[in-house]
């Protein structure tokens, strides 16, 4: 088993541990797009845990760079315009579709939710086709 696969598995288990803790302790699903989207409209008593979660996500980026340098980095050859287009699609799409890789892909698939299964197959499928078009038909992102 290549070492990369082992790291992927280990990281995956840590993600599983964290979403399990969220459910066990706070009774919530860890859907990152949903948690983040909730920050964009004020609802009394519902903001601080969301802020704390996002701060944790950022803090974790620094922590993992210390534990395992080189974990965070993008060597692909695209600029900020591509990143902006992608961000627009991801922001709009995840709210319209009620979730992303964490909420649908990890939490929803774990409880065999039919909605999350359809969502995950859809975004994976469209991701695969998009990469095929950009990488092999147009010759874009790396």
């Amino acid at each position: 088993m290549p070492i990369e696969w082992l790291f992927a598995l280990m990281g995956g288990v840590l993600i599983g541990v964290s979403v399990t803790a969220m459910l066990w302790l706070n009774g919530r699903v860890t859907g990152i797009s949903g948690i983040f989207n909730g920050l964009l409209s004020y609802k009394k008593g519902d903001m601080s845990w969301r802020v704390a979660f996002v701060i944790g996500l950022v803090a974790g980026g620094f922590v993992v760079e210390v534990i395992h340098p080189g974990s965070v980095g993008n060597i692909l050859d695209y600029g900020w315009v591509t990143a902006a287009v992608a961000g627009l699609l991801v922001g709009f799409g995840t709210v319209l579709g009620s979730g992303c890789t964490s909420g649908h892909g990890v939490c929803g698939m774990s409880r065999l939710s039919p909605r999350s299964t359809v969502a995950t197959l859809t975004f994976m499928g469209f991701g695969v086709v998009t990469v095929y078009i950009f990488r092999h038909l147009i010759g874009g992102n790396g």
Binding site: I32, S33, F36, V54, L57, V58, G60, G61, F62, V64, E65, V72, N74, L76, Y78, T82, A83, V85, A86, G87, L88, L89, V90, F92, G93, T94, V95, L96, G97, S98, C100, T101, S102, H104, R115, V118, A119, T120, T122, F123, M124, G125, F126, G127, V128, V129, T130, V131, F134, N141
Partner: peptide, 27 residues
């Protein structure tokens, strides 16, 4: 659900970031 996930999938394939990794990678 389907249209939103499709748009998200396209965005994910374009830059390689979904929401969590995007936020963490700002570091």
């Amino acid at each position: 659900l389907v249209a939103g996930s499709a748009l998200f999938g396209i965005g994910w394939g374009v830059a390689g970031y979904c929401p969590g990794p995007g936020i963490t990678s700002m570091t």
